[in-house]
Every structure is written in C-alpha cells, then in structure tokens.
Design a protein around this nucleic acid. Structure first.
Lengths: 136, 136
DNA sequence: TTACTGGTTGACGTTTACGTAAACTTACTT
DNA sequence: AAGTAAGTTTACGTAAACGTCAACCAGTAA
C-alpha cells in the first residue's frame, strides 16, 4: 500500500519532464515528501499530476487546473463555501460544454474535408484505370 | 452580397480586441483589404477569425488553428498532398477525441463534486429544521 | 579512487499571445 | 478652426510554461 514514486517514474509514466514536474511543485501544485534530498511522490501527488496534465490537454492554464483540483478536496462544511463551490462547478461545466461543442464542430469540419479529399482521390483512380490498367 | 466588416464590427461580434485581430493579421492568419488606410474584412476573413477563436477556446495555438484552417482551403489536386492531408486529418481527429474524453472525465468529476456538496447542504438543512424552524 | 547514475538547486533564456502607451491620420461634426 | 471618433503604426512590456545550461551532491559499481 501507500505507493511512492520517484520523479523519473512519473516522467516515464506520463511522458513529461522532470523540469515540468518540479515547476508544478514550485507553483504549489504538488508537494512531494523528501527522502534525503530526493523527492518522493505519493499516490495523491500522482493523481494531482495526472489531473494537471489532463487539464493541459484541454487547454486549461495551471491556475484553472488548480481551481478544479481544489474542488475535489476535502469539502468544506461551511454553507457559504459550499454554495460558492456549486457556482464554480456550474461555471466550469458551462465552459467545458462549450469546449465540447467546439470540438464537435471541428470534428464535423474535418469529416467534410476528409470526404472531399477521398472523392478527389477516387476520381483520380477511376481516371487512371481507364488510361492504364494496373498502372503504378 | 459580399459583406464587408470594419474591425470594430468584428470586435463587437466576437468579443475580442482590435489588437488581437491585428495581431492575427501580423501572423498571416488574416489578410483584409484596405479602404484607404483602414482595414476591411470579407466574409472569408470573418470565418477565419471565427475558426481561430474557436480553436483558442479548445486550447489550440495559433499555429495549430492555422494548420486546421489550411485544411479547409482549396483542395490540392496532387495525390501525395491529398494523402498527406488525410494523414493530418486523422492525427488531428485523434487529438480532438482525446480532448473530448478528457472533457467528459472532467465533467464526470464535477458531477461527483456537485452531488457530494448538495448532500452536505441537504443534511445541514435537515439539522437546522430540527433545531430552529424558519431559522435565518 | 574514479566514474557513473540519478537527482538537486539556481538562474537565465525562449516562445506564445497578446496588453499598453504614444504619436499620427482621416473624416466628420460643431 | 477645433474637436472627436475610429482607426493606424511602432515599440516596448508582460504573464505563462516551461527549456536549457551549470554547478553540485550522494550512493553505487568497477
């Protein structure tokens, strides 16, 4: 239980760099323990890193990822804070939904591009078959 | 037909800034005509701007947006280029699909956060109703 | 003892995507 | 003529997210 990871293990697993991981620590997004002078990452650290990189892939800034990750943290017991949290969740959800529809629109555009390109290729093939069967 | 737009019209419509629009031109992403010293944007320019901003929302760099927009352009007739295009489409599609699944994962996480927060709020309400009806 | 291997701490450099300010032009409007 | 609105160019500034050295340390293998 209670797995520990070296920095190079995380680098390997997530395909990032040690510089990047240390940078996230510098920004307060990670806080690994130390074994002597070396860093040792817990399962929680690893999860946080995973979430940061996921955020990165969808274009979130580190601050935005931090905000989202903070939402997952030990839920406050204070009513005001809970309501504030629900607001933030709603806002972020709206942004994510916008992103999804932007992605869908782009995918649709690409599908068109693809089908047109394939049509042109097909017509080339037909032409070439007439002119020269088995042509290279 | 053949609508023309001033820079401030585009700024209004898309909620961006003139600085940004000029910057995109500087980077070769837009190339409006001139009426005297002022810029005049065509429908095509407007569409390109729209696509750039859409790309921006999903975290694409300007170069990435340029690449995608270039795919929509007059399809080359050259077989090699068409096949190269199809490769690019496939690559970009893979990235977009990854993004979508990242977004879905994040949305799922947020849904959990929300339901937990609501549970806590509900239990507060119950407690308060016992202790003091109509309490502030 | 020497030489890696794996990690560490600075510190400065770099790219991207604009913001901001200054000084100027052109075309009205008053 | 003077002012204002809308736009322009030029140029320097800036925040984010790392990359890239350089110099150092600590443990292990040869």
């Amino acid at each position: 239980m209670s797995a520990r990871y070296t920095i190079s293990e995380l680098v390997k697993e997530f395909g990032t760099t040690s510089r990047t991981i240390r940078f996230y620590e510098e920004k307060g997004l990670l806080s690994p323990q130390r074994e002597g002078q070396h860093r040792l990452y817990s399962a929680a650290d690893r999860t946080r890193l995973k979430l940061i990189l996921r955020g990165k892939r969808i274009g979130l800034s580190l601050e935005e990822s931090r905000e989202i990750i903070d939402m997952y943290d030990p839920l406050s017991n204070n009513r005001q804070q809970l309501e504030r949290l629900l607001e933030k969740v709603a806002q972020r959800r709206a942004l994510l939904q916008q992103q999804r529809s932007d992605i869908d629109a782009t995918l649709a555009d690409l599908a068109e591009v693809e089908s047109k390109a394939k049509q042109v290729l097909a017509s080339h093939d037909a032409t070439n078959q007439q002119g020269a069967k088995h042509a290279q």
